[in-house]
Design a protein around this nucleic acid. Structure first.
Lengths: 132, 132
DNA sequence: TCTTACCTTTACGTTAACGTCAAGGAGAAG
DNA sequence: CTTCTCCTTGACGTTAACGTAAAGGTAAGA
C-alpha cells in the first residue's frame, strides 16, 4: 500500500538517487563507506535525506572536476562544518584558501587550453575554406 | 669530456625532463608506451626533442585538469594534427567542439564551487569576528 | 501464497597510472 | 681497469574507484 508519495518525498531510496544522478547502487554504497553520505537506517534499508542528496551532488561535481575522493571529501565537509573555536576557525580558513588555490590553478589551466584550442580550430577552419 | 652544454641544449635526456617537470623516469617511459611522447633513439638511449618537451607539458597540464590519459591524448594530438581532406577536417572540428564542451562544463563547475566556497568563507569570518 | 521489484551484505575482479625492485649496459673520470 | 653516474629493459606490486556475481531478505500486488 502506498503511504505518502503524493507530497514530493523528502527522502529517497538508493535506487531513486542512483537513477537521478546516473550512478549505480554500488557507487553510492561505496561513498557511504567513505563517509561521503550517511543515510539513515530503517531496519536494514537505507533512507537518504536532503543532506545526503546535496552531498551526493557535490561529490559528483567534484568528480567532474577530476578531484579524487580524498580531495572531494575535504571540500564537501566544509559545507557543513560546525563553527568551533578560534584556532579551528583559522585552520578552516587556511583549508579554504588551499582548496581555492587549487581551483584557481585549474581554472587558469582551462583558460589556457581553451585559448589554444581556439587557435587550433581557427587554423582548421582556414584550411577548410581554402579547399573551396 | 663535455661536448656542448654551454649553448642551451635543444635536446634532453629522460632525467633532465623528469627533474624539470617533477615526475619520475617511470612516468615518462609510461607516457612513451602510450604514445604521448616519442623520443628519438640513439642506440639504446632516449633523446627528447622540443616537440616531446611541449607534449609532456601539455600532458601534465591535462593531468592537473583531472583528465585521464585517453582524453589527454585526444587533446594533445590535436596540436599537431595534419591538415588532411575535408571529411577529416570536419570530424576534427567536431572533436574540438566536444573537448571544448567538456572544458566549459568544468569551468562552470569551478565557478560554482568557488562562489560557494566564498560564501562558506564569509560565514567563517563572520563567526570569527563575533568572537571578539 | 507466489511472483516481482527492489533492497541487502559479502567478496572477489578489474582498470588506470604508475611504483618498485632486479639485473645489467655505456661512457666519462680517476 | 675500476668506479660512478645515468641510463636501459623486464616484470611484478600497488592504489583508487568502483564492477560484478552470489545468495538472500522484504513488502506489495495478482
Amino acid at each position: 500500500m502506498e503511504i505518502d508519495t503524493a507530497t514530493t518525498s523528502t527522502t529517497w531510496t538508493i535506487g531513486e538517487l542512483a537513477d537521478e544522478f546516473g550512478v549505480t547502487h554500488r557507487t553510492i554504497r561505496f561513498y557511504e563507506d567513505q563517509g561521503l553520505v550517511t543515510p539513515e537506517r530503517r531496519g536494514t534499508a537505507r533512507v537518504f535525506h536532503v543532506r545526503d542528496r546535496v552531498r551526493l551532488a557535490l561529490v559528483l561535481r567534484g568528480k567532474r572536476l577530476g578531484f579524487d575522493l580524498g580531495q572531494i571529501r575535504r571540500i564537501v565537509d566544509m559545507y557543513d562544518e560546525e563553527p568551533g573555536e578560534e584556532g579551528q576557525l583559522r585552520y578552516f580558513l587556511e583549508q579554504i584558501a588551499a582548496r581555492r588555490a587549487e581551483l584557481e590553478q585549474r581554472r587558469q589551466d582551462i583558460e589556457t587550453t581553451l585559448t589554444e584550442l581556439a587557435e587550433v580550430e581557427r587554423r582548421a577552419r582556414e584550411t577548410l575554406t581554402n579547399l573551396h
